[in-house]
Design a protein around this nucleic acid. Sequence first.
DNA 1: AAACCATTGACCGCAGTGGTCAGTGGGGGT
DNA 2: ACCCCCACTGACCACTGCGGTCAATGGTTT
Lengths: 223, 223
Amino acid sequence: MNRVFAELPEDKQKRILNAAYAEFGMHGYKNASTNRMVQAAGISKGTLFYYFNSKNELFNDLVDRALDSTVAHFGALLAANEPDYFDRLLCIAKLKLEYQRENGEVLRFMGMVFVMKDRSHLRPEVRKKYDDIVNDARKKVARQENLSAFRTDVDPVMMRRMVGWIIEGYEKDMVARMEADSDVWQSADIGDSWQKYWDDYYQFIAVLKRIFYKDNTGEADEK
Amino acid sequence: MNRVFAELPEDKQKRILNAAYAEFGMHGYKNASTNRMVQAAGISKGTLFYYFNSKNELFNDLVDRALDSTVAHFGALLAANEPDYFDRLLCIAKLKLEYQRENGEVLRFMGMVFVMKDRSHLRPEVRKKYDDIVNDARKKVARQENLSAFRTDVDPVMMRRMVGWIIEGYEKDMVARMEADSDVWQSADIGDSWQKYWDDYYQFIAVLKRIFYKDNTGEADEK
DNA sequence: AAACCATTGACCGCAGTGGTCAGTGGGGGT
DNA sequence: ACCCCCACTGACCACTGCGGTCAATGGTTT
């Protein structure tokens, strides 16, 4: 990366990075077009290659930045120790959706990198950094597992998988709803609609507890 | 579609169609390459365009065939009336995975058509046929809804969504496992490993019933 | 005035696209 | 033996879009 880029006004940097994140995130490494990037960023082709010498260098730089950014945002989470399984999921979701709102391109980009089958374009150092971070996170999450409050008539591993699928589905829905409402955000007070989503989510987590924890019968004994 | 193609030996037809299904399914309409298709099918480029006059005609023909094929395979399901919600899901899954095993390319292709945002390449008649079938299926499924056995302490709509996400996740897992085992199938007796998956699935459905139906407490009262 | 340097966009060679068509060769009719 | 038919081939076409380059530009500093 060229020194000049680092000294650019922050908003211009962001415009360029976001355009690149979005393009890679949508089309993957190979099908991402530098032409579309520069058009979206509002700069000329020459400038992009002046800042980053090649498509590959740009890509690796983006991965590196995205890793730093996500670690900075989610790192604290892994240190904290919320004891309840679902409350911990709630924390994760909160951070994730917060990050999604202000940095959606980066998350989609990281998702694409995560499922990318061909990693030959990742520089070894970057690939190592990526693997280290992912493994570290996995280990820390595993250490926090505590399923003692779960109902005992269902295999806990299966239960965790189920919960995972449900959360995934719910979050996908939530993001879709948020994107549908995103034009409203531009003008109206964000706090309100944001709160609405969270009320929904709290209720949703409460349902999960009622279903998967042991001290609730199928019949309504609370509401 | 050329008359000559219809008079081809069935296996040659299938080889060509499957190659095309796979290519479109993997890369979408625009990025699908007729070159890769003919290579995978083991025919020459000229032949493909002799059978189907253009990429677009081929695509529409594939959609049309896929619709007929899936309707033939799943049509009976919508008429039948398995009263239990989960057992009905089980029927669906059984048909789906059966179809998947012998016709995986078609399912992936249909999935791609289903999520395709740009439908400008679908001929109007084919688009209409597609929409009619999808809407018809939706209506019939909705008519069969009967949630009276579900626990009453959770919103039934939310519950149905959760079940949908779980099933989706489980099936994705199952397909992945099946693909990992697919080399085994080639030689060993298929019946056995196939049965293994179904035992798993039955158990999985039993768990869902235990969790989402009302007359089970959180503690083990059956196993 | 001169040197500097961030920025531009026309341009390059290339890879891969959907589609074409003169040519080929085996089978059947005469 | 002949020829005609026609399914089939693959070299070829015009074209698009790619990653990447570089002479030219123009504002700023010396």
